[in-house]
Design a protein around this nucleic acid. Sequence first.
DNA 1: AACGAAGTCAACCGCTAATTT
DNA 2: GAAATTAGCGGTTGACTTCGT
Length: 200
Amino acid sequence: MAPKNDGSAKKVVTSKGAWTAEEDQKLSQYIEIHGAKRWKTVAVKAGLNRCGKSCRLRWLNYLRPNIKRGNISDAEEDLILRLHKLLGNRWALIAGRLPGRTDNEIKNYWNSHLSKKINKEKPIMETSMEKEIVPEKPSCHVIPHVDAEGTVKLGITGNSEANLDVNEFFDFTTELGSCGLEWVNKFLELDEDSWLIEKR
DNA sequence: AACGAAGTCAACCGCTAATTT
DNA sequence: GAAATTAGCGGTTGACTTCGT
């Protein structure tokens, strides 16, 4: 899809809507000098007729360095699928495991591509897979959280018996390259009891 | 070629959590 | 400790593009 904010848009909106190249430049320049904090101040000082929130979003999703745009690889897609299965709609958490990807991009990709893919595959999955934690065990919830070191941990709550198989989520036969799977490996190195917080 | 439907994605909104005063 | 402010998240919207007829 062609970019919509290349400055050639019919409607020129400065306070809302698509960002112009000029606004991007102002924001980037300001952040380069003063850093990305106090977004309300950034918006004012950079001379942007935008709210701080909008500036933050623009910076995080498009302007900050090392952002990857488009062309989500098979390995990344596979990782997103498995992380989503594990974490649910925790887009920021998922994005944190995909270097250069943003939560917004992953959320969009999920909604426009993967959710449909899942729906297509679901009838097959339902017959082939024995366990589906949330649907079949509504009283048992997997609650992911990130500790101080940035490690993803899982808590199991509810009164039913927890029966979480990590291999159900991660297929290590797939070549995933350098898309941030170190943590998955690290994850598996942990003793089961250390991440199953409330295993019963 | 024209039109409507469907798909895509950037941006906004409302809310909560975290931090500062 | 309370109130105010700021940061961050996920859901949703709407403009635009692409596809199908």
